[in-house]
């Protein structure tokens, strides 16, 4: 009896498997979306998605602006942790197949997926934030994070009392190292004797450092205890913890990242301690791409949003940098004119 039931089960399963394996039936991507002239924007966010108070949210702002001003339809999908490149490819394909154009991948993780999908859908315009794709129908949206961070370094050096400055990176990815490199150079160029302590919250493929305010807080506390009085955190959601720690010690400054964190509803209570924020205008890049598609002249190729066109910038909320604005403007001019070349690697 036992054996027979086992064999029956095995047969049933094999049959079921065989049925599945033949991959019969129609494909889900059979019918292409209707082309009635309306612009439908497909957004594929990185892990965290809308509501991460940082990078993804910045892209979401651009999308919201496009929705409000250009009246486009939108669809937003979000990556999960533990995804394979095939998953990201699938997400972009289903958007392209659904008639969404442009389709925007937010984050460098979408690079390989966009390379492949863009070739399959040559009539769709793709956007890729934070990386560069060689495909013809892709608008690669990249930023000079190091330039914005350089200015933050100048501000930190001028505001620090004894030249002890800290940098907290979310994860030691090349992108975050760009922030660190620019920041360090800005500090050293302004005050050669100053020291920059660099710390990452997590390493390698462990991206938890982008979403752990507790780790950000602990790291900032450690730095404050060592006498560091200006801390720049480029750590996504973890930055909130760092700002909170800094706000707990009078006379010290925090520097925010990605959006104007002094205006962030959750962080505005610490606005008095937020010296400035290095803003990366992903929203501008997203909005411009959507607009170009709507106007019938889709942007393609690499677009670098640099300090020169305010693709990255320092905020002045609270007027904490008003006294050093002249030096900041001078540094900015030197970068824009090419007198200062900011390093992208440490």
């Amino acid at each position: 009896m036992r054996r027979v039931s086992k064999i029956t089960a095995a047969c049933a399963v094999t049959a079921a498997l065989a049925l599945t394996a033949t991959a019969c039936g129609e494909s889900s991507t059979g019918d292409s979306g209707s082309d009635n002239g309306d612009i439908k924007v497909g957004m594929a966010y990185d892990v965290g998605g809308r509501g991460d108070n940082s990078f993804n949210d910045s892209a979401a702002r651009g999308l919201d602006k496009a929705k409000a001003e250009l009246g486009v339809e939108t669809k937003e999908l979000t990556a999960k942790t533990g995804e394979t490149p095939a998953d990201r490819e699938q997400r972009l394909s289903s958007l392209a197949e659904g008639g969404f154009n442009p389709v925007i991948g937010v984050g460098f993780a979408y690079k390989d997926a966009i390379d492949k999908v863009a070739a399959k859908y040559p009539k769709t315009t793709f956007g890729l934030v934070d990386s560069v794709s060689e495909a013809k129908n892709v608008d690669s949206i990249v930023f000079t994070e190091e330039q914005g961070s350089y200015l933050a370094g100048v501000a930190a050096a001028l505001k620090s009392k004894d030249g002890k400055i800290g940098f907290i990176g979310g994860v030691d990815t090349p992108l975050i190292k760009k922030f660190a490199a620019g920041f360090q150079q800005g500090v050293k160029d302004t005050k050669p004797a100053a020291s920059v302590t660099i710390q990452y919250l997590s390493t390698g493929t462990d991206f938890s450092g982008f979403g752990a305010p507790d780790k950000g807080k602990a790291a900032a506390k450690g730095m404050l205890d060592k006498g560091i009085d200006v801390i720049y955190a480029a750590a996504g959601g973890s930055g909130a913890g760092s700002i909170e720690a800094v706000a707990g010690k009078p006379g010290t400054w925090a520097i925010g990242v990605d959006s104007d964190q002094a205006k962030d509803p959750a962080l505005s209570k610490y606005a008095g301690s937020i010296l400035t924020s290095v803003v990366k205008n992903v929203d501008t890049g997203v909005y411009e791409l959507v607009k170009s598609v709507k106007d019938g002249k889709p942007m393609t190729g690499t677009h670098t949003y640099s300090l020169a066109e305010n693709g990255v910038s320092l905020t002045t909320t609270g007027g904490h940098v008003a006294d050093i604005q002249a030096q900041l403007d001078a540094a900015k001019k030197k970068i824009v004119d090419g007198q200062i070349k900011v390093a992208t690697t440490l």
């Binding site: 460098f108 690079k111 934070d130 030691d172 760009k178 390698g204 493929t205 462990d206 690697t345």
Partner: peptide, 24 residues
């Protein structure tokens, strides 16, 4: 394991930086 990968997956060790400078 995470830390070992994080240490070795760096440009100049066992990793390579892509052209855009964002992915190792």
């Amino acid at each position: 394991a995470t830390a070992i990968i994080g240490y070795l997956l760096q440009p100049g060790r066992l990793g390579h930086l892509d052209a855009a400078g964002t992915k190792v």
